[in-house]
Design a protein around this nucleic acid. Structure first.
Lengths: 125, 125
DNA sequence: CTGAATCCCTGCCGATACTG
DNA sequence: CAGTATCGGCAGGGATTCAG
C-alpha cells in the first residue's frame, strides 16, 4: 500500500533537507518560526500590532500584567528577527512607535492556523 | 481611513473573547496549540509520526540524540493533549506503537504554515 | 516615556542509573 | 524494549531599581 505521505516540506517539492533533520536545528524553517514566536506574551504583542501601530506605553496599557522589562525584551527580539520596526517619534515626552514589517504581517496566517487548531481542540464552547 | 483589521479570530466571525485576552491564558486557542508543540524535539517527533506509525525504539533510532527520558516525556505529553495514541503490541520483546490521532494528523497544515513562514524568512537558500 | 541592570526563583532538558 | 528516578546546569521571566 502507499506509504502515508504527509509531507511537511512544501507541497510539490521533494522533502527538503530540514524535513530530514535528525535533531533540533536553528536553520529548520519550523524552528525559525517557533523561535520568532517564542516566549510568553509574544503572540499577544504580535496580535496587538496586527491591529495597528502601538507605542510602548500603549502596549503596556493594553497588556497591564506585562512588565516593562519583558515587553522591551520581546520587542527587541521581534525587531531582531525582522518582525517589528521601531520608530522614534520626535517631541516630548519621547515615544517610540512599533509597527509590523511585511514579514511580521505575514505571521497573520500562521497565527490563524494556530488559532484554528487550538479552537477545534477545545472541549468547551 | 479604514483601520487595518487583520483579525486573528476566525474570518467572518467577530473577535472571540480570546482575541481580546489581556494576558497569557491556557484557554487561548493559540496557546493551546503552542502548548501542544512546546518542548525541544516535539515537532520532530510529530513529523516522524506524520510519516507513519513508529515504535519507541524506532523513534530513538531516527532521532539518535534524543534521550529516552525526553522521548517518553514528549510522547506522554502528546498523548495527554490527544495528539498521539499508544498501542501495546503483544509478544516479546515488549513494543509500543505510537500513532497520530486524527487531531494529531490535523497538525499537518499547522506545521506546514510554520515551515512556510520560516522558509520564506531565511536569508540563505 | 522608554528602556537597561540586577536579583532571584522556577522549570526545562541532558546525563546517568535503575526497573518491569 | 520501554520506560521511571534522580541530579545538576542553565535559560526564561517576574519584581524592583536605575538611567537617557
Amino acid at each position: 500500500m502507499a506509504n502515508q505521505r504527509v509531507c511537511i516540506a512544501r507541497p510539490g517539492l521533494p522533502d527538503g533537507p530540514m524535513g530530514e533533520a535528525a535533531e533540533p536545528s536553528p536553520s529548520c524553517p519550523v524552528e525559525i518560526t517557533l523561535a520568532a514566536l517564542r516566549g510568553r506574551w509574544t503572540t499577544l504583542v504580535i496580535r496587538e500590532l496586527l491591529r495597528g501601530d502601538r507605542t510602548f506605553s500603549e502596549l503596556r496599557r493594553i497588556l497591564p500584567r506585562l512588565s516593562d522589562k519583558v515587553l522591551s525584551e520581546r520587542l527587541a527580539h521581534l525587531a531582531d528577527v525582522g518582525v517589528v520596526d521601531r520608530h522614534r517619534l520626535s517631541g516630548w515626552p519621547p515615544r517610540v512607535r512599533y509597527s509590523l514589517t511585511p514579514r511580521g504581517r505575514s505571521l497573520g496566517p500562521v497565527l490563524q492556523a494556530l488559532w484554528d487548531w487550538g479552537r477545534d481542540s477545545r472541549v468547551g464552547p
